[in-house]
Design a binder for these strands. Structure first.
Ligand SMILES: Nc1nc2c(ncn2[C@H]2C[C@H](O)[C@@H](COP(=O)(O)OP(=O)(O)OP(=O)(O)O)O2)c(=O)[nH]1
Ligand SMILES: [Mn+2]
Ligand SMILES: [Mn+2]
Length: 353
DNA sequence: TACATTTGCCAC
DNA sequence: AAACGTGGCAAATGTA
């Protein structure tokens, strides 16, 4: 059974005697996609296993599961949005989780296309409003770092700048996939990614990884100061907090166990920023809905995906809704840098422009 | 049958 | 996973 990591591991490492991957805490060898990537070329079955994994993941979690969750009365999927779902202040979504609908692979995007506008008037559309580089903007506010602050006042795209530098290509040649990986790098380094971690993820030598991270902190020196001050402050107070005062208690930050303590330190670095994002979003949601009610619009707020709101709108309300979210969302908080929101419109969630 | 744990992976 | 953070879900496996 390819779906059993235990059985798969026995075939790969005992019967086929392929090179051993990293060890899990139980002593077995990992068969996750990251590890299997390294075995590509060692045996033709590896590519097939990776393909099997992608297909069974999408089929099992989404394609098979979602149709059964359509409410027969409304013909719609009704997820739970859990107000206290996350320790940072984020909400979570369950039964089903609509905050992790695929988007990355083309096959995944096909699943997203199943979410369509239908019930808002005679000619309904979906409208999405997503904050641009949101946690980097909050970081700029916290740190006051000159390079970060200047970049956002000039409306630059830091994810793209990082991509251009890390992949050694001019800005015009940065692809969406490169920008996505640069995003992982930007947030990863900010929240404690180590040279070891980066070397494993990007399959580069640890020295090279260390050099990328060194350049990141050299470019944005305020970030290191933020990290050190935040960890120290959390040690003293016993909690981390957002700009708006939301707290997360982290007693483990004073643990004698170094692993436990360091994990708490990374959580402490993350919480004020991820949590402020959540606070801003909650403020924006309340104000947007209030304004929609006040104007008596037929548009509906249907989804929240952490820094993104999705509305189902009649065609004749699209322009007004775009104006409304662009008035309210960027002004939900006044930070040291502007907040920016990207609006897209489409018939399905999978193709929005 | 019910529930917990482990492994893996989707999203932000 | 010691080794970015925050979640939820499926399948296999183990226990009661
Ligand atoms: N720690 C961490 N946070 C992430 C990661 N991916 C997304 N986030 C957080 C930080 C982002 O600012 C926030 C919203 O995600 P988005 O995909 O919308 O990215 P972002 O707004 O930064 O860029 P964008 O301009 O919308 O493409 O979620 C990640 O891999 N690690
Ligand atoms: Mn965003
Ligand atoms: Mn987003």
């Amino acid at each position: 059974n390819i779906g059993s990591p235990q059985q798969l591991s026995r075939v790969l490492f005992e019967e086929l005697k392929l090179p051993k991957t990293r060890r899990l805490k139980t002593g077995s060898y990992s068969t996750d996609a990251q590890s299997l990537e390294e075995l590509r070329g060692a045996h033709p079955v590896i590519d097939l296993i990776l393909e099997y994994r992608e297909l069974t993941k999408l089929k099992g979690t989404y394609v098979d599961a979602l149709p059964g969750l359509v409410n027969p009365r409304t013909g719609r999927i009704h997820s739970d949005f859990n107000q206290t779902g996350a320790a940072t202040g984020r909400i979570s979504s369950s039964n089903p989780n609509l905050q992790n609908i695929p988007v990355r692979s083309e096959l995944g995007r096909q699943i997203r296309r199943a979410f369509v506008a239908r019930d808002a008037g005679p000619d309904p559309y979906l409208l999405s409003a997503d904050y641009s580089q949101i946690e980097l903007r909050i970081l700029a506010h916290y740190t006051g770092d000159p390079a970060l602050v200047e970049a956002f006042r000039r409306d630059e795209d830091i994810h793209a700048v990082t991509a251009s530098q890390v992949f050694g290509v001019p800005m015009e040649k940065v692809t969406p996939e490169m920008r996505r990986r640069a995003k992982v790098f930007n947030f990863g380094v900010l929240y404690g990614l180590t040279p070891y971690g980066l070397s494993v993820r990007e399959r580069i030598p640890q020295e090279e990884a260390a050099e990328f991270i060194r350049r990141y902190f050299e470019k944005y020196p305020g970030v290191r100061r933020y990290i050190e001050e935040t960890v120290q402050r959390t040690r003293e107070l016993g909690y981390a907090e957002t700009i708006f005062g939301r707290r997360r208690y982290l007693p483990e930050i004073n643990s004698p166990n170094a692993n436990v303590r360091q994990a708490a330190e990374r959580a402490a670095i993350n919480m004020p920023i991820q949590g402020t994002n959540a606070d801003i979003m909650k403020i924006a949601m309340a104000r947007v809905q209030q304004e929609m009610d006040r104007r008596g619009l037929r548009s509906m707020m249907v989804l929240q995906v952490h820094d993104e709101l999705i509305f189902e709108c009649p065609a004749n309300e699209l322009e007004e809704m775009q104006g409304l979210v662009l008035d309210i969302m960027p002004n939900a908080a006044q930070l040291a840098v502007p907040l920016k929101v990207d609006v897209k419109v489409g018939k399905t969630w999978g193709d929005m422009e």
